[in-house]
Nucleic acid binder design. Structure first.
Lengths: 336, 336
DNA sequence: GGGCAATGTCTTTAATTGATACCATCAGAA
DNA sequence: TTCTGATGGTATCAATTAAAGACATTGCCC
């Protein structure tokens, strides 16, 4: 490979000058700079990321932490989609993304250690077990970290405005005349808490009751459980007229349970999801749901990351970004 | 950060010895080796990937090329899923994955240049425009490349056994009594060619006609077009009793068109997809489809990559891996 | 058995990788 | 003389590695 040495030789200047010229530094004669850059182009010079990083301690690499318990972060529409958006935005600024595992060679290391080993400039964390010691160490480190759907003490995070989303979903059902509304929420997390509160508050604001049998813990992306809980709800004497699910997949599974009970989703029982998974925009019946703006979430995360990388001082209130959500009206909520 | 210098000092040996000890080289006294390794652990030493790579020219990094025309490779279930499987397998062997873009800093470079800049040891390519000059340069380079769904001259590739998949789908429809079977195929590609051939051969083997109006070009993951083509088929005097779609998403869109025409998918008109997208395993009606084994595809790709990285000589016939597919019987094909 | 070379084991020295950055240098201008 | 702009020398980043060196052990011959 061509190195700055070759350019230096070809141009009759020192490597120091070549380096300066290529990095657009002030203290090089413009004529020299142009000559160097021209020669670099002609020789097909490419900077060596390793050498540069070794000296400058900057890799222009962002670590991506995305491992759920089933090791399948990439297969979740929401996270894959947010990552993709983040990736495009970061690449536009010259950063590359590297997945962080807990292996180096044949040995096991913590995520933090892996990040140090690879010398990443920052970390993007989504869809991991944030409560684990391993991830907490990383969050507490000096590395710039931006996380999705998790807010840590003094840290930087992006998430959908879950409260607004649930308030809209619930409010919509109420406007459609529903009074017995069931809420199946995901496993305990900040996101779940925000949603539970929003649901209870909305119901309260409309002076509607929320009996315990209509307020159930499910699991994100766990259709089997959603199916069972739906069956439970349907067999209940105080059966709801509308069910809010923690995500689209669960909603779809719920609809199957409804159908299996001989009922029609969107007629006897109404259904609302959460996510706005584009695949389900093409299946029938069209699911009414809350769309999470994955594109914006990724872009916001990139913005925050870039500001951190520039050592910009980010005011407290900008550290947590709530991205707007949108009600997608489908045909699964009946007008009562 | 702790470097081998610190360990050397602490142990009273030279950095060379430390390096050898940590790399398990023969020419170090076992006692010294253990002492060094113990000290390294105590000091919290982490190797510096940059320095190591600079000297050895190996990064233990694999470049990932995954950009479709819409810049959304990660959002395709099939590719995201294959990548995930590949990632897990590579990480197990100590490799990390880095996305390859066409930017370095603020300038545009070819994918090949980006790979050289980042010094990746190999490249995984899926869901890119393989015919583009940019990608072709990469494929023709000295870098180990393994691709998914594309076979290049003398190169290494993994794909589903598409021919078998279509033969199974088509054979299944025939066994169910269907004679007028429509085939909507994707945009021109090797995969499409294999599928088209398989379809025509299967039909021929059963002495069934394939009129031109039932053999249509669609697009992968392009539901709108699938919807239109389905409408076209339904309005045709020689309307088929069964339609094979290029993928599950298209099949679902097709079913919507069928429903919109007042018909029932799986009754008057049968439908078969391709992919086995798990989300659609939970929607009704359950789609009959061909499942692509994304897990195995990713693992096979990793196996080939690892063998290439070990400079193993891979016999010609092992360079292209056809992964088995599976018919998932749903409820969208009627018994005639 | 003593002497000396040969062998082998372990360790160190020092060069190298490619780029950057500090500091020195130097010419010409003020 | 001092300042300024342009350029060069060289140490440095953290690791690896070829070659050399230190030292103990062994072999062989007289």
């Amino acid at each position: 490979m061509v190195s700055i040495k070759d350019i230096a030789q070809a141009c009759g200047v020192s490597t120091a000058t070549v380096s300066k010229a290529l990095n657009n530094r002030e203290d090089v004669n413009p004529a020299t700079r142009d000559r160097v850059r021209e020669t670099a182009k002609q020789l097909g010079y490419l900077p060596n990321a390793m050498a540069r990083a070794l000296k400058t301690n900057r890799t222009y690499n962002i670590g991506v932490l995305m491992v759920d318990k089933a090791d399948r972060g990439l297969q979740h529409y929401f996270f894959a989609s947010v990552l993709d958006s983040f990736k495009v935005a970061m690449e536009r600024s010259g950063y590359d993304l590297t997945f962080i595992s807990n292996q180096i060679g044949s040995q096991t290391y913590s995520y933090y250690e892996h990040c140090m080993y690879r010398n990443v400039d920052g970390v993007f964390a989504a869809c991991v077990d944030f409560e684990s010691a391993d991830v907490q160490t990383l969050l507490a480190s000096e590395l710039p970290v931006v996380s999705v759907d998790y807010v840590g003490e003094g840290r930087y995070a992006v998430a959908s405005d879950n409260a607004k989303g649930i308030a809209e979903a619930c409010g919509y059902a109420i406007r459609k005349g529903h009074k017995q509304i069931a809420f199946i929420y995901g496993e305990p997390s900040q996101v779940t808490d925000a949603r539970k509160d929003a649901f209870l508050n909305t119901m309260k604001a409309h002076r509607l009751e929320v009996p315990g049998n209509l307020f159930l813990e499910g699991k994100y992306l766990h259709p089997e459980l959603a199916y069972q809980l739906t069956q439970l709800l349907l067999s209940d004497p105080g059966c709801p007229t509308c069910i809010l699910y923690p995500d689209d997949i669960c909603a779809v599974a719920g609809m199957t349970a409804i159908r299996d009970a001989g009922l029609t989703p969107g007629k006897e029982i109404s259904v609302i999801g959460f996510d706005g998974n584009p695949i389900l925009r093409m299946t029938g019946p069209l699911l009414t749901t809350i769309r999470q703006d994955t594109e914006t979430i990724g872009i916001r995360a990139a913005e925050i990351m870039l500001r951190m990388l520039q050592k910009e001082n980010i005011p407290e209130r900008e550290r947590i970004s709530n991205v707007d959500v949108q009600l997608l009206e489908g045909e699964t909520v009946a007008q009562l």
